[in-house]
Design a protein around this nucleic acid. Structure first.
Length: 508
RNA sequence: CGGAGCGUAGCGCAGCCUGGUAGCGCAUCUGCUUUGGGAGCAGAGGGUCGUGUGUUCGAAUCACACCGCUCCGACCA
């Protein structure tokens, strides 16, 4: 069968790259590990930003912007933070270039007294501001968010999933009490969970990260984990309770109503352009991307079937009218995003381009449709009947009337499919490490998903040993899901009584 | 940074072993035909063969170095 892509999901890594390229999402750039996000991909990001920004503001946060450069001494203040990020920092050391022997090089005379780090995350520079902004308990809670780019010099980049520079939002808050900061951490995790599921149609498991997977400098780290179509986990968002670690390192103090000085409890939380990689690997199929309508830059694309004949004018007029009617409607609380594709390429080509890009509804209008007042359309979430493309013909009135409902159905359908995959592929009932090793070891290429097992939450060197044992099987602990049972089996690592259930799987 | 593979037209590849100065498919452009939907025929354009150095009368082809990409490790949103 002829498909819109020349790779299938059997070769998942190749397939992923083909979708990113053929759906016009992004491409690699001359800068190693840094990507160019193309209009279709950036359009998705803008919609993600828009809706998430709304939700972040609705929970009481305000947007700010902090500098891209962070003085090296700021980073040095929190010891764990240094350990965590030192190996992946871009550093600015000069402020001028000079021609030396015909080569343009950093001017040795223009060396900075203190090097500047390109932010890998902004706890330290925002914390510095907090230490000046916060004086009294009346200044708390301090609830700040910023949309920014950050740089982490990663070893192995992969478009959207792990790039040297990426776009994200980072929330940073300061609170009077530990309880309040912990509540904030959980609240934002819940915002991410709801956003991923409702808007990205990407079901996730929210839970707490084990100690060895914590953010450098955090007391607790929580995550939402999504299951990709190859069974691997993608950490799609994180929320950190930082305790007073950063407050102590940066002197973020407030005076309480009794006049006593205390350190603030702080939090930070973020999601990035990685979410787009998650959407691709959650919903894509062998014909390319399938976008949830809520984040599709174009929800309905109308392709006129033009034939260089006089009746083309009628077809175009009919299409323009249809797009106008659709654009006046409201879907997902916003004006419906419809497009008439008038690009001067073959109509068949247009159709397949929109299939690859994942436009939820693709409408094709020929002279007979126009004359009879009909539309012919395809649902991207239900594109084929066997090998054949499923074209649905309907009176125009009916289509326009049902368009919003159709988009809602597609959104719900994509979520339901992904939810069934997630729920159906978390294996419980494994009670020993060997049984788990056997499960992941057999027929190595097949779809494995995750396992849910009990453990005794070892710490220190015992946890290191667990980590190493898992690493040998290419496994990691994803998180301890919310909603734990009352009783637990024995720990598959230590044989001690379990205190918690955790998810284990392969990950991106 | 360690192991493996790969860099030849926009994309996918052949040619390399056995050195003789570049080819195929798709895409692009032009013309004609076709038209309920990924069309056919004819013609055309497009390449310092990743970069550099070396061997040679002659290098895509052989040697060395470097750069980049992909996969597997280490790192990670």
């Amino acid at each position: 069968m002829q498909r819109a892509l020349n790779v299938t999901r059997e070769r998942f890594a190749d397939w992923y790259q083909a979708v990113v390229r053929d759906a016009d999402m992004a491409e690699s750039s001359p800068v190693r590990g840094a990507m160019v996000i193309k209009p279709w991909g950036y359009g998705v990001w803008e919609l993600i930003q828009q809706e998430l920004d709304r939700r972040i503001k609705a929970t009481g946060h305000e947007n700010c912007y902090f500098p891209l450069f962070i003085p090296l001494s700021f980073i040095a203040k929190e010891a764990d933070h240094v350990d965590g990020f030192a190996k992946e920092m871009a550093v600015v050391t000069h402020h001028r270039l000079k021609q030396i022997d015909g080569k343009l090089v950093p001017d040795p005379e223009a060396k900075l007294e203190e090097p500047l780090v390109v932010r890998p995350t902004s706890e330290t520079i925002i914390g510095d501001a907090f230490s000046r902004w916060i004086r009294s308990h009346r200044d708390l809670p301090m609830l700040i968010n910023q949309w920014a780019n950050v740089v982490r010099w990663e070893m192995r980049p992969r478009l959207f999933l792990r790039t040297t520079e990426f776009l994200w939002q980072e929330g940073h808050t300061a609170h009077a009490t530990e309880a309040e900061a912990v509540e904030e951490t959980r609240k934002m995790l819940e915002v991410y969970r709801a956003f991923a599921e409702e808007i990205l149609a990407m079901p996730v498991i929210a839970g707490e990260k084990p100690e060895n997977e914590r953010f450098p400098g955090a007391v607790n780290t929580y995550s939402i984990e999504a299951m990709m179509q190859d069974g691997k986990a993608l950490q799609a968002g994180t929320s950190h309770f930082l305790g007073t670690h950063f407050a102590e390192a940066q002197n973020i103090k407030f005076q309480d109503d009794a006049g006593a000085l205390s350190f603030c409890n702080t939090t930070s939380w973020g999601v990035s352009t990685r979410l787009i990689g998650g959407v691709i690997m959650t919903h894509g199929d062998d014909d390319g991307l399938r976008l949830p309508p809520a984040i599709a830059p174009r929800q309905i694309v109308v392709v006129p079937m033009l034939r260089d004949k006089p009746e083309d004018a009628d077809v175009l007029a009919y299409c323009e009218n249809l797009v106008k009617a659709l654009s006046g409607m409201t879907a997902f609380g916003q004006p419906l995003r419809a497009l008439l594709d008038t690009k001067k390429i073959k109509s068949a080509e247009k159709r397949w381009n929109w299939v690859r890009r994942g436009a939820p509804l693709i409408v094709e209008i020929g002279p007979r449709d126009a004359a009879a007042g009909n539309v012919t359309y395809m649902r991207r979430d239900d594109l084929r009947d066997g090998d054949k493309v499923k074209s649905i013909a309907k009176p125009r009135v009916d289509f326009v009337e049902s368009a919003v409902q159709l988009l809602a159905e597609i959104q719900a359908g994509l979520y339901a499919d992904a939810k069934a995959r997630l729920d159906g592929n978390i294996k419980s009932g494994i009670t020993s490490f060997d049984a788990m090793a056997a499960y992941f070891g057999e027929d190595d290429d097949s779809f494995k998903g995750w396992v849910r097992v009990a453990w005794s939450r070892p710490t220190g060197t015992a946890l290191d040993a667990v980590e190493q044992k898992l690493k040998a099987l290419k496994l990691t602990i994803r998180n301890a899901p919310e909603g734990q049972p009352q009783t637990f089996g024995t720990c598959i690592f230590t044989g001690a009584p379990g205190v918690e259930e955790i998810l284990i799987g392969r990950a991106y």
